[in-house]
Simulated scan of single mutants.
Amino acid sequence: MKKILFVLSEWGYWGEELIGPLEACDSAGYDITFLTPNGKKPTPLSVSCAPGYIDPPLGRSVTSEEMAEKTRKINDSERLDNPKSLADWFPRRAYPSSATYLRDMEAYYKQIDKIIAEELSEYDALAIVGGSGAMVDLANNQRLHDLILGFYKLQKPIAAECYGVACLAFARDFREKKSLIWGKHVTGHPIDYDYLDGTGFEGHHAIDGTNKGFGDGYINFGPPFYPLEFILRDAVGSDGAFIGNVGHQTSVLVDYPFITSRSTASSRECGRILVQVLETGLTRYGW
């Protein structure tokens, strides 16, 4: 049985971007492990559970009644209650100011190499779920970068959706500092679809500290922290390409080992293609 590792933000994931690939993997009979930065239950963004919500750039609802119900159902179930903790699994890289920096880094790399050889080898693919929360605790998460690098070294499929694709742009060998997607063809949330206002975060980080979650801690940050399209265009370099497919209903690309998905509407296709990569050895799709 193939094992898939799903990574979710603790600051709000988009429901359909979990449901799409998860249903495809469930249907294929895969074993699923959920992972969050600190082992807390992930929270779906409330707008991804609200069919009446109108996405400002698109001028229409991007949440169907079906997907809203499925998102609420998995949130109310126990399936996401006890995710694996990335912080407990992967070590933190030492600061250069450490008095024992060289010894610390030797221990760090030794532990990373051991995890890759003995633990990541048990998994068949990595899937990074999108949503605005990914900007907060996934995009610049050093431990997640090391996890991605591990799958890359093992040449196992790495799928990322929407703002989760930013993790691929920033993931790189710390010694070389060159993006893993340099020279690759990727898609992601294009600037045409970025909000001018309303980029929200929520979860177990309620403003008043009560940790109630699911909408109670909603924070409107305005526009996104960064224009993902520009970051991806720079990260792939002159030999790669960012393909937003603006105007097309979906956008999913495979440039092995990477599977990238633009946004909500592409989620089911992303799941279908991930299974195809695993079952048929597909290495190129969408470009």
Rank of each mutant, 00 (worst) to 15 (best):
M1Y: 13
F6K: 01
V7Y: 04
V7T: 07
L8I: 02
E10N: 03
G15V: 09
E17P: 02
L18Q: 11
G20L: 11
P21N: 15
C25Q: 12
I32Y: 10
T33N: 14
G39M: 12
K41R: 15
S48P: 01
S48L: 05
C49F: 07
A50K: 14
D55N: 15
D55G: 09
P56K: 15
R60I: 08
S64H: 09
A68Q: 13
E69A: 15
I74G: 06
R79Q: 14
P83T: 11
P83V: 10
K84D: 09
W89P: 02
P96D: 11
D104Q: 05
K110R: 12
I112R: 09
K114H: 07
I115R: 12
I116M: 13
A117H: 07
Y123P: 08
I128G: 00
G131M: 10
A134N: 00
V136C: 10
A139G: 03
Q142G: 13
L147C: 14
I148T: 08
Y152T: 03
C162K: 05
C167H: 01
R172N: 15
F174W: 08
K178G: 05
K184Y: 06
K184M: 07
G188H: 04
P190S: 13
Y193N: 14
H205V: 03
I207Y: 01
T210R: 12
F214D: 06
P223L: 08
F225H: 08
F230M: 10
F230K: 12
D234C: 12
G237P: 04
S238N: 12
G240Q: 09
G240D: 11
G240F: 08
T250A: 06
D255I: 00
P257G: 03
P257W: 01
S267K: 01
Q276K: 15
L278G: 08
L278S: 08
G281W: 08
